[in-house]
Design a binder for these strands. Structure first.
Length: 582
RNA sequence: GCCCCUAUAGCUCAGUCGGAUAGAGCAGUGGUUUCCUAAACCAUGUGCCCCAGGUUCAAUUCCUGGUAGGGGCACCA
């Protein structure tokens, strides 16, 4: 992550609310400044210096140097221009530096190092004053507007209501939930959506399976169909339905009984899924029922549209879509020879429906077993006239559960899958959510159940939460000793190495949020929060907050409050609690 | 056979648009508390960045080809 920091201009800024555990900040004055990242300012400085020196334009990227000693920010622009300008990179770098006009007086030092890096060191006072601005921004710290209000739909989990949710859903749920939060933080209008496949063949199979178990319970031994659901939970469903409805379905003919039981079982499963998601703190904007599309025959209208574009044909009694004309490996069936619409066919209608509801871009989060399905949906969307980049899929790799250091073997057939709810209940919601967003989406995630349950320093969740609790405790202690948080504190007293290091870290928050949103990745945020916690703990250990030196204490209280703001903001995005005491 | 993902320290993993001496946590070792929470801090070692080519002033990063591991290739979802 590159460091980000702020420059303050005297422009009007909207009102804000201040986060505080104790309400001591209620008298805070309103900010009248707009926040701008230091990187953007530096990039502009370098760009105009470049124009001045060489009459050249180039995209200037400001990054964080590998070594802290080299400075706060750096750019390699001189290295990149060496060829086109036919000049040694160091010469270019020197000339750029000569032409830099630091109008905001932000810079303490600019050096040219190595083969031609330009390193910038910001003044201490800039870092110090950022503490006040972070507190002032409150929960808006890290917000941006580049999403421009664009409507984005993020569909995730969408597990079949034919069985309990497994651990992969827990990863997808945490990921999708946090992604939406991140996107909205940078100005998008992103929404969470869950698609419920409550129609079609699989649901009929569920009905038949429940019916078999139900009849068996009623004394009429019946086998579960070969392709049906064999899991224990089906017996549970049958038991519940028998308890609620007695034997009223026994005398019905098979078709009728299956249909009735299928409907009732489905309602129970969907209710269960909704409950698990709610307890996991995922609040979907939309629970979309496949049956609502089928009722309106929307999927047949899609077929008509594809037909009219001459993109379908009949073969072997089935109706095919020419998906290979849009990059799919082969054509796909829309209507089977039995005359049944495929899942795919309804799915096309579903995705188009999202567009018709006003979403400009769609993101689906799928498991690795669905990657082969991407091309055909993409093909369908293109066939219907939507640009390729409007439909996106992010594959979330698998989850391996580890217990006692051993991989827990899971098999659907053997019925020993680990349910999402079990894991969440066992390790706690905070730990589960944190662990499930810790890894890059492309990587399989090893979930160490024992580690997630540990209440010790090895567990990263507690490390971050402990930092927050510690801060709350110290501020409380300070209050008891007659110290109040005051925005007028003299921040120039924050000079210790640990203090500056912590402040610099706090200023990276907006950059981390931006990177997550831009890359559609969540794992940078928990990693960053661990860094903030580390910087804070280090500061805390080496510096007392509550001292005889009242001015210094007040300055340090400000630093603590700013740190608390960042931790709270970060945890809030992850929807993990920020405890006041541990 | 075809497609997707992965390969970096003993272990689990970061590493942004290719840049300066490749990082963190855990484990190991040694230390820190008359003091606001020790669920904490400090010190300490380790790397054919899977292999071979290519592009480039510069490759862990991009391209090609391998090797190994995981997943997927239905008129299921």
């Amino acid at each position: 992550m590159s460091i980000s920091s702020f420059i303050f201009f005297s422009l009007p800024f909207e009102n804000f609310t201040v986060l505080s555990a104790f309400g001591v900040m209620s008298n805070v004055r309103k900010s009248t400044r707009i926040i701008m990242k230091a990187e953007i300012y530096l990039a502009q400085c370098v760009e105009s210096a470049l124009k001045q020196a060489y009459d050249t334009e180039a995209k200037v990227v400001i990054e964080k140097p590998r070594q802290e000693a080299w400075g706060d920010f750096a750019t390699t622009v001189a290295l990149g221009l060496a060829k086109s300008l036919r000049t040694a990179p160091r010469v270019i770098a020197d000339k750029i530096v000569e032409n830099i006009k630091d109008e905001a007086h932000l810079l303490d030092k600019i050096t040219v190092d190595g083969p031609g890096f330009i390193n910038f060191t910001l003044s201490k006072s800039h870092w110090q004053s950022s503490v006040r601005e972070i507190i002032g921004a409150g929960e808006k710290h890290g917000n941006d507007t580049w999403g421009n209000g664009k409507k984005i739909n993020i569909e995730f989990v969408s597990a079949n209501p034919t069985g309990p949710l497994n651990v992969v859903s827990a990863r997808a749920a945490a990921t999708g939930d946090v992604l939406v939060e991140l996107l909205n933080k940078v100005g998008f209008a992103a929404e969470r959506e869950y698609y419920i496949n409550d129609a079609g063949r699989q649901i009929r199979l569920l009905g038949a399976s429940v019916a078999a178990r139900y009849l068996t319970l009623c004394g009429k031994n019946t086998a579960v169909p070969d392709e049906g659901y064999q899991g224990e939970y089906v017996i549970g469903l049958a038991e519940q339905l028998k308890a609620e409805h007695g034997e009223e379905f026994v005398e019905l003919d098979d078709l009728e009984r299956n249909a009735r039981l299928s409907k009732l079982a489905l309602e129970k499963m969907v209710a269960l899924h909704k409950k698990v998601m709610e307890e996991y703190r995922v609040n979907y904007h939309t629970w979309f029922y496949e049956s609502s599309l089928r009722k309106k025959d929307v999927h047949f209208k899609i077929v008509d549209e594809l037909k009219s574009k001459n993109l379908t044909y009949e073969k072997d009694g089935a109706l095919w879509f020419k998906s290979s004309e849009f990059g799919d490996a082969k054509d796909r069936v829309l209507v089977t020879k039995e005359g049944e619409p495929t899942y795919f066919m309804v799915d096309i209608a579903y995705h188009q429906d999202k567009f018709e509801r006003g979403f400009e871009t769609l993101y689906d989060l799928w498991g690795p077993d669905h990657h082969g399905y991407i091309d055909r949906v993409s093909a369908a969307m293109q066939a219907l006239g939507y640009a390729k980049e409007k439909f996106n899929v992010r594959i979330i790799q698998q989850v391996n559960m580890l217990r006692d250091g051993e991989l827990v073997k899971m098999s659907k057939r053997a019925g020993n899958i680990i349910e999402m709810n079990e894991v969440v209940q066992e390790v706690g919601i905070d730990a589960a959510r944190f662990f499930f967003v810790m890894r890059k989406l492309d990587s399989p995630l090893d979930f160490d159940i024992d580690l997630a349950k540990k209440r010790s320093d090895e567990n990263p969740v507690y490390y971050v939460q402990y930092a927050h609790a510690r801060i709350v405790n110290v501020i409380q202690f300070a209050n008891e000793n007659g110290l109040e948080l005051s925005l007028d504190a003299d921040l120039s007293l924050l000079e210790a190495n640990e203090e500056i290091a912590l402040i610099r870290k706090l200023n990276e928050f907006p950059t981390v949020i931006g990177a997550c949103a831009r890359l559609m990745e969540v794992h940078h945020l928990p990693a960053y929060l661990m860094e903030v916690a580390a910087a804070f703990h280090s500061f805390y250990h080496n510096n007392r907050v509550v001292t005889d030196d009242r001015k210094l204490s007040e300055a340090r209280m400000m630093l603590l409050e700013a740190t608390r703001c960042v931790l709270l903001n970060g945890l809030k995005i992850l929807r993990i609690s920020a405890p006041d005491r541990m």
